[in-house]
Design a protein around this nucleic acid. Structure first.
Lengths: 149, 149
DNA sequence: TATTGTTATACTCTATAACTATA
DNA sequence: TATAGTTATAGAGTATAACAATA
């Protein structure tokens, strides 16, 4: 209430939220020795039957495939993901979570959920719903805009 | 309206917004050959009379001072910031924006404002105000939590 | 010819440990 | 002794260009 409403104010708070969330995520992942890009990849692979190709992963993470090679190298050295041949295209690979990868992801999810419940307790229920709704709205707009670039 | 309300849904949308915003920011900064951490530093220095010390900058950007040395090295090679001796403590420095640094920051600000106005047009005015309000609320909670760690 | 993925290369960010100059 | 900042070192992420294998 009483905030200055302007594009500048909006831009500033969005930037701060984005930076603070990433900082916090990095801190949460520290204990698992996972980087943010590695976590993004693990999440992208969750619940995807048959896995994703390297180029699909690169696309999902907003990176170039040469970058993804390195990320998957490190994740697969740790046994969290695996590269399998693509059934019909011999140029391509199918990357998927291993059992330990799924277990780790579930463990991180539980921890994040607990922490978030604690944060959300500080927001009245009606506001929580409203915030979730507006964030979806905002996300759809910026994703749509990004797609049209 | 009608979104699934749950900590999982909340966590997911916050993560997506945070990642998408950073991605977009990176894209916007590309044309100025600035990285996100460099931009964060320039912003931290804006409107700060007399500048900040290396350790204050590191604190503001959530990094260790050895990291900040490199970031400031690159920004000052480009003439966007400068290191001056601290007036009373001969161990410390005062880092501040140069005139070109201020000009560049203002230029980026104009561009970001134009783009954001375009995005915000897609959100009804009442929702914009509400979203801004709720983002401030959320930001205060997570910053507060981070400070108590 | 075009696409999939990797390798080679170069640069930025990141942290830790060791160091210097000063407080 | 403690603090401010840098250097040395190592590793991760990032992009571009060149490449091999396959489509």
């Amino acid at each position: 209430m009483g905030e200055d409403y302007s594009p500048e104010a909006f831009e500033k708070v969005i930037l701060q939220v984005s930076l603070a969330e990433r900082q916090r995520l990095k801190g949460e992942l520290d204990e698992y020795q996972l980087s943010v890009p590695q976590y993004v990849v693990l999440r992208a692979l969750a619940h995807v039957q048959g896995g994703l190709s390297m180029s699909e992963l690169a696309e999902a993470a907003g990176q170039v495939s040469a970058t993804m090679t390195g990320i998957i190298d490190r994740l697969s050295e740790r046994g969290l993901v695996e590269r399998k041949p693509h059934p019909s295209d011999r140029r391509a690979l199918q990357v998927s979570l291993t059992a330990p990868g799924e277990t780790l992801l579930a463990q991180i999810g539980r921890k994040k959920r607990l922490r978030l419940q604690h944060v959300l307790k500080a927001i009245p229920e009606a506001d929580r719903r409203q915030l979730l709704h507006l964030l979806h709205l905002y996300l759809n707009i910026i994703l749509n805009e990004a797609a049209h670039k």
